[in-house]
Design a protein around this nucleic acid. Structure first.
Length: 1022
RNA sequence: GCGGAUGUGGUGGAAUUGGUAGACACGCUAGACUUAGGAUCUAGUGCCGCGAGGUGUGAGAGUUCGAGUCUCUCCAUCCGUACCA
């Protein structure tokens, strides 16, 4: 009998669990190391082979650090609030807590079978009241804090109130959009209501009317990072802008620190860059341009509050404030552009232009966010007829509106410098506006010059200056003239913090006279109340509004807050709770967080770049500012593991059933790619591959090799045919025009369960049995009479039938094999398609390893004799390499190092304890089960291999006396020669020159040069 | 458009500081063994060529005694982002 993977692995997992082998306690005598995985959302589908990839890597590393003598914190938990459980609850009425519990159980079983060394006593679940009590508590801290721009730190709100009482808000530099000023006397005279409204303008967590991403299909608002291409990240539903009263987090306050902190982190450049772009810092200055116009209009009053409009002596004067990063180009301004929504537009438009402007505004407002995005190339705009005055030249400048200027960024207005900005150049070119060149010796007849190198000319006091110097001087002059200020703008918006959903943390907030108040600490947690349905009320209130008064464990004021917190609330601080998961008095005890500090190694996907990773950095900095924790970055080093992709198989067929389908008709009738939607769910098709519809000739199939016609290549006379290709299904917008079409047949491709396909050949009968709705379909035949199956490599997903679960592989090969195989696939960070072809190689390696300890008949065959020099060399070479590989997280080469080692030892017939025992320890982080078994067989009956010490590397075993020198001629390697390493360079040269082979390659010539690098190479230049 | 990453055999991938390209594994070819097992062992396997030899890391140039590795230009693929003034 050989090693029985299944039985032994089970035995040891039970042993580890029974003995709490992986329990971790604080130990001040040992250095700490914190290895963390991004905790999973426990979905109903369970784990697939891609999930454990990062967990295996972190587990290997955690075990390695343990062997090195570190006290390693390596916990696991669940991000268990979230949409899928709630959607399921809406459909079935089952409480999301029940679904979640069941899913967690399944996850736990799957995680356990991998042999991970998690300390399960430290498990956290974001949806458990013991945990979210402290999420609510942290919210309270944010509510009761403001951001001091002077110190760049959050402070408690009391310090702000004290300063209001003393001096009003005049001297306060805070992160706020509040612009009015009040004195100490004013403050004292304000009503409670007024005071609270002002405080809301300063609090880190605040309630405000803001433009939010509203997703009608999900019935909730979404954060910017949850919206992808104008659709919701989850579900792909359309998202619209809506003004709503919502909780927000003043993350903007931390923009600069979030940017600076990146420098100190050991993260990949790409993630850092994603965060930098998201924060979007631009340095520049504001400039005011005066506008003169004669006729005051009705719009005046409303505009007055929104923009700076003053009644001047002669009629009405207004100014347009712009933000620019290129103040040096101010003399190149030849027009201005306002966003169509800019409040000044109505005010300044001349009567002659009124109609044009109105039409353009209407057109712009009808365009959805998506259309606007896909329409970037088209230049559009309209002239208001009004003029601004250039602050330095005094010249009149046309004022236009155009939708390339966004109302939501900066001031919603730009000074257009066509010579220095391509968009401005395009706009000027399109509308025939003057282009002034202010760059010395630069040709701008074809395109704008956007470089920041060169000299400015034709610009009064800036002429002759290099661009960078001119920027500084321009800001100085602008400030001196009192028409603007140097300014830094960030793209980062405050984060909307409330969701109109059920399955999330309730806020620790109640309302009194309409004012939101936070509960006392003693009253926490506010437990998620029971409701009759997980849907909004008839009045459109969030589901929590359904809860009866008695259903709340805390009920105060007129009502409780009905919103719940977003998914990122619980995940923003969970790494802290692992340090002290059962503390009922604090979110984490000071001495625990002082001991464990921040996460040393964080492993997880790269898709959280703008969400979780930004938010948890924000909360960490905040908690640091309030002195709750001793560090201000949560994750020191991070590795983003690549995705494991699945191989999806498709079958191609013609469906004979006559199907009526709704097709969305867009304004133009020719479609290529994804511009067209088709709702095919009713026929079960998940992909439409090729479909050709022509109203003249009916509906037909496209050939596989049909060239896809680009929109621009189409002839006018083809225009009333519809054509589309390879579209992925998406939701249809409610207001999209539709046409009804009857299909005689559809040529569709369908995902096929892996089990029915082998080498792209389909088992047709099995398939028809599995999907009876296609039993009459006509399948496409290959020339050899087999059924065509295509395949593609995609993300693993239940709906694509390409999921490989770890369970079956563990059952077949054992967890050690699966662990090592996943590592062996390639570099951790790289995405790679899943393929089980090679798994045998790893499995055989483990069996071969086992055989080192046993004879042919599987009898224990370990000897205590001294090993050969060779075997010691192999061992120490391996110790060195494994250490190096792990330090640089090169797990794949680690596996191959072990393979080389075992191959060598097998060849040497090595069975000595002195070699094999250290090897067991070395391998134990990769394959914990088999090594535990061997460790015990080696006589360590009481202990476990996880508490052994990492073998010491001894250089002396690797010392060589000679080396095989590669000898090259002109860089081309010809042969090798074994020479003593102690030989001097001249001796070596003499010896090599004397060789027959050398003479042959020299062809009788004298070498021009001989390069000898001792211990490396020999090269002749001929 | 911009930003990031990646391009090496039939396949996954090695080559860490510029120094023998293709480690290790899969697959394949031929053979041995028989306890018929997802077993083991031996030999071979980048490409062209019978061979000597030539050639070879997406393409092209450059630096160097020497380049997969450094520099420049270009191409392809993937990911992120998008009128941010």
């Amino acid at each position: 009998m050989e090693y029985n993977f299944l039985e032994n692995e089970k035995k040891w997992r039970k042993y580890w669990a029974d003995n709490k082998t992986y329990r971790v306690l604080e130990d001040s005598t040992k250095p700490k190391y914190y290895v963390l995985d991004m905790f999973p959302y426990p979905s109903g589908a369970g784990l697939h082979v891609g999930h454990p990839l990062g967990y295996i890597a972190s587990d290997i590393f955690a075990r390695y650090k343990k062997l090195q003598g570190f006290n390693v914190l390596h916990p696991m938990g669940y991000d268990s609030f979230g949409l899928p459980a709630e959607q399921y609850a809406i459909q079935t009425g089952q409480h999301p807590a029940i679904t979640t519990e069941a899913n967690i159980k399944r996850y736990r079983d799957q995680l356990d079978q991998m042999g991970f060394c998690f300390d399960w006593d430290r498990e956290v679940r974001t949806s458990s009241p013991e945990y979210y009590k402290w999420t609510q508590w942290i919210f309270k801290q944010l509510f009761n804090a403001w951001f001091n721009n002077g110190t760049q730190k959050s402070e408690r709100i009391e310090t702000l109130i004290a300063r209001f009482e003393e001096n009003g808000n005049a001297s306060i530099k805070a992160c706020t959009d509040y612009e009015e000023s009040f004195s100490d006397v004013d403050w004292k005279n304000f009503s409670t209501n007024e005071k609270e409204n002002i405080l809301q303008e300063y609090r880190m967590a605040y309630l405000a009317d803001s433009w939010v991403n509203w997703c009608p299909a999900l019935g909730t608002v979404l954060a910017n990072d949850e919206v992808v291409n104008g659709l919701s990240e989850r579900g792909g539903h359309p998202v619209e802008q809506k003004l709503m009263r919502q909780w927000s987090m003043r993350i903007k306050a931390y923009a600069q620190r979030l940017l600076d902190g990146l420098e100190t982190l050991d993260w990949t450049d790409s993630i850092k860059e994603i965060q930098r772009n998201w924060i979007g810092k631009s340095e520049g200055c504001s400039v005011k341009f005066n506008v003169a116009f004669d006729t005051p209009t009705d719009a005046f009053d409303s505009a007055q509050s929104a923009v700076g409009v003053d009644r001047g002596l002669s009629g009405v004067e207004a100014h347009i404030e712009v933000f620019t990063t290129r103040p040096d180009t101010i003399f190149g301004v030849s027009f201005m552009v306002l966003a169509p929504e800019h409040p000044l537009v109505d005010l300044i438009t001349t009567p002659e232009q009124k109609e044009t402007i109105e039409a353009y505004k209407k057109e712009a407002s009808l365009k959805s966010e998506r259309d606007r995005q896909s329409d970037v190339k088209n230049i559009s705009g309209a002239n208001t007829g009004a003029f601004a005055i250039h602050p330095f030249t005094g010249e009149k400048i046309q004022i236009w509106i155009g939708d390339y200027v966004l109302a939501s960024y900066g001031t919603g207005a730009v000074m257009a410098v066509p010579c220095g900005d391509q968009r401005d150049w395009d706009f000027a070119n399109h509308f025939g506006i003057e282009i002034i060149n202010i760059f010395e010796n630069v040709d701008i007849s074809e395109a704008a010059y956007a470089e920041k190198e060169g000299l400015i000319s034709n610009s009064d006091f800036l002429s002759g200056l290099p661009i960078k110097k001119a920027m500084k001087l321009a800001i100085h002059k602008i400030e001196e003239a009192g028409i603007g200020k140097g300014k830094i703008l960030y793209r980062l918006r405050d984060a909307i913090f409330s969701r109109q959903r059920y399955w999330g943390e309730p806020f620790p907030v109640y309302y009194e006279n309409g004012i939101p108040k936070v509960l006392d600490d003693k009253q926490l947690p506010v437990i998620l109340p029971e409701v009759d349905k997980y849907l909004p009320t008839e009045e459109g209130e969030p589901p929590l509004a359904r809860a009866k008064k008695e259903a709340w464990n805390v009920s105060q004021g007129e009502r409780m807050e009905y919103n719940t917190m977003p998914g990122w609330a619980g995940s923003s601080w969970y790494f802290l709770r692992y340090m002290d998961p059962h503390n009922e008095n604090e979110f984490v005890a000071k001495e625990k967080v002082d001991y464990w500090q921040n996460v040393d190694l964080y492993i997880g996907g790269a898709e959280h770049g703008t969400g979780h990773l930004l938010y948890s950095r924000f909360w960490t900095k905040f908690l640091y500012d309030l002195d709750y924790i001793p560090f201000d970055e949560p994750f020191q080093k991070m590795i983003n593991q690549g995705m494991i992709l699945g191989r999806s198989s498709f079958v191609k067929m013609i469906n004979p059933s006559r199907i009526s389908t709704t097709i969305v008709k867009r304004p133009f009738p020719i479609f290529v790619s994804n511009n067209l939607s088709i709702t095919l769910n009713q026929v079960g098709a998940r992909y439409v591959h090729y479909l050709f519809i022509n109203q003249e000739i009916g509906i037909g199939l496209l050939d596989d090799d049909l060239k896809i016609i680009e929109e621009s290549e189409l002839n006018e006379n083809e225009i009333d045919s519809l054509l589309f290709f390879g579209s992925q299904l998406r939701q249809v917008y409610p207001n999209e025009p539709k046409i009804e079409i009857d299909f005689d047949f559809l040529f569709i491709s369908n995902h096929v369960e892996i089990a029915f396909v082998e080498n792209d050949k389909l088992d047709i009968e099995a398939f028809k049995k599995w999907r009876p709705e296609f039993k009459d379909a006509e399948f496409i035949l290959e020339d050899d009479g087999t059924y065509i199956c295509g395949h593609e490599v995609e993300k693993m997903s239940k709906s694509k039938y390409n999921v490989q679960t770890p369970d079956e592989l563990v059952e077949k090969f054992g967890a050690d094999t699966l662990r090592m195989y996943e590592m062996f696939l390639g570099p951790l960070e790289q995405s790679k398609p899943w393929d089980t072809k090679g798994i045998n190689g790893v499995h055989n390696f483990l069996r071969k390893f086992w055989r080192l300890f046993h004879d042919k008949d599987n009898n224990w065959a370990i000897s205590d004799e001294a090993p050969s020099k060779e075997s010691m060399k192999t061992l120490h070479k391996t110790i060195k390499k494994i250490g190096e590989d792990l330090e640089r997280f090169s797990f794949n080469t680690g596996v191959s190092t072990f393979m080389i080692c075992v191959n060598e030892l097998t060849e040497q017939k090595c069975n000595q304890r002195q070699v094999l025992e250290p090897l067991v320890v070395l391998l134990s982080s990769f394959a914990p089960h088999i090594t535990e078994e061997l460790w015990h067989m080696l006589g360590h009956e009481a202990g476990t291999v996880s508490t052994a010490s990492f073998p010491k590397f001894d250089e002396s075993h690797l010392v060589e006396s000679s080396y095989d020198y590669p000898v090259s001629f002109n860089g081309k390697m010809r042969f090798t020669v074994n020479l003593d390493l102690s030989m001097s360079v001249p001796d070596m040269q003499k010896e090599i020159l004397a060789m027959e082979q050398t003479q042959k390659y020299l062809e009788g010539k004298e070498p021009k040069k001989v390069i000898i690098v001792p211990g490396k190479i020999v090269n002749f230049v001929v």
